[in-house]
Amino acid sequence: MDRNKLGKWLQSPGKMGQKYSLHALYFCTGCGIIEIPPTITARWDAERFGVIPVATPRQANLFLITGYVSVKTLRPIIRSYEQMPEPKFTVGFGSCPINGGMYWDSYNTIKHLDKYIPIDGWIAGCMPRPEAVFVAVTHLWTLIDKGMADGYKKYREDYHYYRENQEKILGKLEWPPLFSSKKM
C-alpha cells in the first residue's frame, strides 16, 4: 500500500484517483453476486480498498462481471459497459466468463466474454472467495500504475471487431455504434 507516498500522488494524481476510488457497478449478472454482499459489508469491508458499489453505469468505473453470461444478459452487459465513462475497468469474476466453466456445452451461455467486451483481469474459481476480489483489486492497481489496464482504449480502437462479434450472437443491435468506425 503506497497511500502515504505524497510524491507519487503529486506525480500522477489522476491515476491515483482512479486507483483508490473504484466504483463498482451494481449489476447481478450471475451467481457470483452471492459473494459481493459479504465483500461490501462489515466483515470483509471492500471500502478499505476504495471499492464501493454504485447504482448506475454512469457513475461507475469498475465492472465486476459476476459469473456466467447468458445470451440474454450479454445485451445489458454491453449496454452498461458502453454507458460507463472512461477510464473504465472490467474484471471477470469466476470461471464461467473465462471459458464457459461448467456450462461449456450449454446452448445459452457465452463461452469467452473477452470476444465481446475487453476484460482487464480475471478471477478464477467457482466461487472465488471475497479475498480473491481484494487480490484482484490490488492487482488492478498495479496494472493501472503501469498503464496496462487499457481495455477501454482497446475497445475504442477495435470497436468494429467487437461490434461484429456482438452482432453475430445478438443479431442486429438496436443502438447506433458507440464510436465511428475507422475501416468497415
Binding site: 456445452d105 450449454s106 463461452k111 470476444k115 482497446k154 471487431y161 467487437y162 462479434n165 450472437i169
Partner: peptide
C-alpha cells in the same frame, strides 16, 4: 445437439 450447436455458433466467433 447442444455440443454441436456450441461448436457451430460460439466457437466460430474469433478472438479480437
Amino acid at each position: 445437439d447442444t455440443r454441436k450447436y456450441v461448436q457451430d455458433v460460439f466457437d466460430k466467433i474469433p478472438f479480437v
